[in-house]
């Protein structure tokens, strides 16, 4: 879970500001993940591995991505889960 800052615990006004900032950021991120549905995504993984896949969905804890047609160095895997810990970054076009 996400820690709230010590300052916010003491100051209700700052707590509200922090909650508002967190909501705005999270909503925007969730919309970004939702917009990726069925899009071609390029993943840059640790150990210099690059993958392309069709994005399916993410779990809400951002631990796993569910993808289809994953192009791996050793062939195509029809349905796959990618561990977010293995990923450095990913790219898609809008």
């Amino acid at each position: 879970s996400i820690p709230t800052s010590a300052a916010s615990e003491a100051d209700p006004e700052q707590l509200q500001q922090e909650q508002h900032a967190r909501s705005v950021l999270r909503e925007s991120f969730l919309r970004c993940l939702l917009s990726m549905n069925s899009k071609k995504v390029q993943f840059h993984m640790h150990e210099k591995v690059k993958l392309e896949a069709t994005f399916g969905a993410s779990d809400i804890d951002v631990l796993n991505f569910q993808v289809s047609d994953l192009h791996t160095p050793i062939g195509v895997q029809k349905e796959a889960l990618i561990r977010c810990q293995d990923v450095i970054s990913f790219t898609f076009d809008v």
Partner: peptide
């Protein structure tokens, strides 16, 4: 999607 498509982890062992 996971119930329906039964995806397997790639890679099998975490990088």
């Amino acid at each position: 999607n996971c119930d329906l498509k039964k995806p397997k982890y790639w890679p099998v062992i975490p990088l």
